[in-house]
Nucleic acid binder design. Structure first.
Length: 500
RNA sequence: GGCGCUAUGGUGUAGUUGGUUAACACGCCGCCCUCUCAAGGCGGAGACCACGGGUUCGAGCCCCGUUAGCGCUGCCA
């Protein structure tokens, strides 16, 4: 049997990084097993689903490089008729029943507490989960009342005795006694629109899904779905639940509380490389085992991936809301930097180009007459960059004559030595005579001039760094001179004399 | 409240059928390199493997209990 998996997000917001990881694992498993990877948009809650959200989810998957679905995207809402028919069939077969209890609406805000409170109350009074006055209503009477126009919801009839069990590919054998499971609602009263558990099952059957890989928050409710499979007379697929990704305080990662760190697009927009972030995400809740490898290409991850390598304990996504430098997980940042400085230059160049175009720093010559220079410059500055944004930020002075001076750098490297006012223009003149303009010649000229001027070469080097780049830190200064060029270097040295 | 899941340094993890000084990565500290900052190299701090009992010659690995965290308990998904 060929493997068929699906990623099934509900389009009620941006693509959460936890969902992105679920998508990744599904994709990895499909590619590993030579199976099919499908996308199903679970938009049964029409109140909250938006097209905008669907677009952003798809854009996120595209960015991650896992948007090569093997079949057309399925929109769950379009199958509502099938879902409803399945539920009604169960009513006819006596496996489900109409519940004529009036619908009670719930405020979305604090449902969780409300539910817990209700459950506590029910437990205190010893109320059975399946006690419902309509559960054993004769079918004829039920049909009659329905025909008479009474509104009703449809509930699955959970057996009185026995237990539900299934083997989760990650969490192992799972068991739950039926008395713990309520007669879940399949169709809402009134419009008879299908609810999540029903829709998922019917669609997974229709799509021939063999493995359901999803967040652990669905683990206990899987018994309910297993029950629906049973009622429908279909063997359930293999379930594989994934550990959750938690915030530093171990709470669930949510937009309300944690903001943009949990949105996948944030990473794209803040200069992350898809390959790096994907790599980082894969390691949250999964590891290739034995070798304990970390930096892996997509192909290597596919090679190493297995459901057995998935953990059972939740992972913490480590970041700090107080410290801007730790706005996201430090390891993700490190990994991004690692990718930026070690990936093949020709793969990085197009990404840098996009960033420069977006920030107005791109010039056509960079891919034409100055492509060699551009490549050399990127190679030089990428060594200490963390994100693509750094190319237009810290890297600005290498690509544009309009850049800012860091006050601390000016104070430290220019203002502390008054003689630089005369020395800098003199150094400029000296460098203008260097021929050919090579790193070695530049270094020789600068050191010779430092000797003659009776100052340490370091004084010139550090002053030059600030004069040429506006910063106190950067690559080896002679490389910087070489890359910035003779004329521009000389001009910047003279201009900087005014800052002394 | 009930049910379920989980528990290795601050974080992510390794630790194959019980036999080690409990390993790696990020982060942190120091040294080297050096024109700065990184990178890199070397070294260090940081885990009585949640706690308490067992089983065993021997337990991070097996069993029981406790605690904590998380999840589910919805006519949300």
């Amino acid at each position: 049997m060929t493997v068929r998996v699906r990623f099934a997000p509900s389009p009620t917001g941006y693509l959460h990084i936890g969902s992105a990881r679920t998508a990744l694992f599904n994709w990895l498993f499909a590619r590993k097993t030579g199976g099919a990877f499908l996308l199903r948009v679970e938009d049964t809650d029409l109140q909250r689903s938006t097209e905008e959200s669907t677009r952003s989810i798809i854009a996120g998957l595209e960015w991650l490089g896992i948007a090569d679905y093997d079949e057309e995207i399925v929109f769950q809402s379009r199958n509502a008729d099938n879902h409803r028919a399945a539920a009604l069939r169960l009513v006819a077969e006596g496996k489900a029943y109409r519940d004529f209890t009036p619908k009670e609406t719930r405020a979305d805000a604090d449902v969780k507490q409300e539910i817990a409170a209700r459950a506590r109350g029910a437990a205190a009074e010893g109320v059975d989960h399946r006690s419902n006055p309509y559960r054993d209503l004769p079918l004829e009477e039920s049909d009659r009342r329905a025909e008479a126009g009474e509104t009703f919801a449809v509930r699955l009839k959970v057996a009185r005795e026995g237990r539900s069990s299934f083997v989760d590919a990650v969490y192992g054998a799972q068991e739950r006694v039926y008395s713990e499971i309520e007669d879940l609602v399949l169709l809402r009263s009134g419009d008879l629109s299908p609810l999540y558990n029903l829709s998922v099952v019917v669609d997974d059957i229709e799509m021939d899904i063999t493995h359901v890989i999803r967040g652990q928050d669905h683990l206990t409710n899987t018994h309910k779905q297993a029950l629906i499979y049973g009622a429908l007379g279909v063997a359930p697929p293999t379930f594989a639940h994934l550990p959750l990704i938690l915030a530093p305080n171990k709470a669930k990662l949510s937009k309300r509380k944690h903001g943009e760190v949990v949105s996948l697009t944030t990473y794209r927009d803040r200069g992350f490389l898809a390959a790096a972030f994907r790599n980082f995400l894969a390691l949250l809740g999964w590891s290739p085992g034995e070798e304990n490898r970390e930096i892996m290409t997509l192909a290597e991850m596919v090679e190493q991936f297995s459901l057995e390598g998935i953990h059972r304990s939740n992972a913490v996504f480590n970041f700090s809301e107080q410290d801007a430098r730790q706005w996201t997980d430090q390891k993700a940042l490190w990994m991004n930097a690692e990718y930026i400085r070690t990936m093949p230059l020709e793969e990085l160049l197009p990404l840098v180009r996009s960033e420069l175009e977006a920030s107005g720093l791109w010039r056509p010559e960079y891919s034409d007459s100055e492509s060699a220079w551009f490549g050399r410059t990127v190679e030089l500055i990428r060594q200490r960059f963390y994100t693509l944004k750094d190319f237009s930020g810290q890297g600005r002075a290498y690509l544009s004559d309009e850049f800012e001076f860091d006050d601390a750098a000016v104070a430290k490297n220019l203002k502390k030595e008054p003689r630089l006012k005369e020395l800098l223009p003199a150094l400029a003149a000296r460098l203008e005579a260097v021929e050919p303009w090579t790193v070695e010649n530049i270094e020789a000229a600068l050191r010779a001039f430092a000797d003659e001027s009776n100052v340490k070469a370091g004084l010139f080097i550090n002053a030059s760094r600030t004069a040429l780049t506006g910063q106190a830190v950067g690559p080896s200064m002679f490389d910087v001179f070489e890359v910035i060029g003779r004329e521009r270097s000389a001009k910047r040295l003279r201009d900087a004399a005014r800052l002394v």
